[in-house]
Deep mutational scan, measured.
Amino acid sequence: QIFVKTLTGKTITLEVEPSDTIENVKAKIQDKEGIPPDQQRLIFAGKQLEDGRTLSDYNIQKESTLHLVL
Rank of each mutant, 00 (worst) to 15 (best):
Q1N: 10
Q1E: 08
Q1V: 15
F3T: 06
V4S: 01
K5M: 13
K5H: 10
K5F: 07
T6W: 15
L7V: 12
L7S: 14
T8V: 08
G9Y: 04
G9H: 05
K10A: 08
K10S: 07
T11F: 09
I12G: 01
I12E: 01
T13S: 10
L14N: 00
E15A: 11
E15L: 14
V16D: 00
E17M: 12
P18F: 15
P18D: 10
S19H: 12
S19T: 12
S19V: 06
I22W: 02
I22Q: 02
E23T: 09
E23G: 13
E23A: 15
E23K: 12
V25M: 05
V25E: 00
V25D: 00
K26P: 00
A27T: 11
A27C: 11
K28F: 06
K28P: 00
K28Q: 10
I29H: 00
I29L: 07
Q30E: 10
Q30S: 11
Q30Y: 15
Q30C: 15
D31W: 09
D31T: 10
K32G: 04
K32V: 11
E33W: 14
I35N: 03
I35Y: 14
P36I: 05
P37V: 15
P37R: 13
P37M: 14
Q39R: 12
Q39K: 12
L42G: 00
I43N: 06
F44W: 09
F44N: 02
A45L: 13
G46E: 05
G46K: 04
G46C: 10
K47H: 13
K47N: 10
K47G: 06
Q48M: 15
Q48T: 15
Q48R: 08
L49W: 01
D51Y: 05
G52N: 11
G52T: 10
R53W: 10
R53S: 07
R53K: 13
T54F: 07
L55R: 00
S56K: 13
D57P: 00
Y58C: 04
Y58D: 02
Y58H: 03
N59G: 15
N59K: 10
I60Q: 01
I60K: 01
I60V: 08
Q61C: 08
Q61F: 09
Q61R: 09
E63I: 04
E63A: 11
E63Y: 15
S64R: 03
S64Y: 09
T65W: 09
T65L: 10
T65V: 14
T65Y: 08
L66A: 02
H67I: 13
H67K: 07
H67D: 09
L68W: 02
L68N: 01
L68P: 00
V69H: 10
V69A: 08
L70S: 10
L70G: 09
L70V: 13
